[in-house]
Amino acid sequence: MTSPGRPPHQDLRLVTLVAAGGAVGSVARYLVSLVLPHEPGEWPWSTFAVNLAGAFLLGWLLEALARRGPETPRLRRVRLFFGTGMLGGFTTYSSLALDITQLTGDGTWPAALGYAGATLLLGTLAALLGVLLGARTPPSTFGRLLRGRDDR
Results as ranks from 00 to 15, higher is better:
residue 90 F to E: 07
residue 133 L to P: 08
residue 6 R to F: 02
residue 46 S to T: 05
residue 137 T to E: 09
residue 48 F to I: 03
residue 123 G to R: 08
residue 116 A to V: 05
residue 88 G to Y: 10
residue 72 T to Y: 03
residue 122 L to A: 13
residue 119 T to Q: 10
residue 10 Q to Y: 08
residue 136 R to Y: 08
residue 126 A to F: 13
residue 39 E to I: 00
residue 63 E to Y: 01
residue 112 A to W: 03
residue 85 G to Y: 07
residue 2 T to S: 15
residue 105 G to K: 06
residue 46 S to Y: 04
residue 9 H to F: 15
residue 150 D to G: 13
residue 118 A to V: 09
residue 135 A to P: 09
residue 70 P to R: 15
residue 74 R to C: 08
residue 129 L to Y: 01
residue 106 D to P: 00
residue 11 D to T: 15
residue 58 L to V: 15
residue 29 R to E: 05
residue 60 W to A: 05
residue 75 L to E: 00
residue 89 G to H: 12
residue 144 R to H: 11
residue 64 A to F: 09
residue 73 P to Q: 01
residue 133 L to N: 04
residue 145 L to H: 08
residue 116 A to S: 12
residue 146 L to Y: 01
residue 80 L to R: 11
residue 145 L to N: 11
residue 105 G to T: 07
residue 116 A to I: 04
residue 120 L to K: 05
residue 150 D to T: 15
residue 88 G to K: 07
residue 151 D to Y: 02
residue 58 L to W: 10
residue 23 A to S: 14
residue 91 T to C: 14
residue 147 R to P: 00
residue 34 L to R: 14
residue 44 P to R: 00
residue 58 L to R: 07
residue 116 A to P: 00
residue 136 R to P: 11
residue 86 M to R: 12
residue 3 S to A: 15
residue 56 F to P: 04
residue 73 P to F: 00
residue 48 F to W: 12
residue 115 Y to P: 02
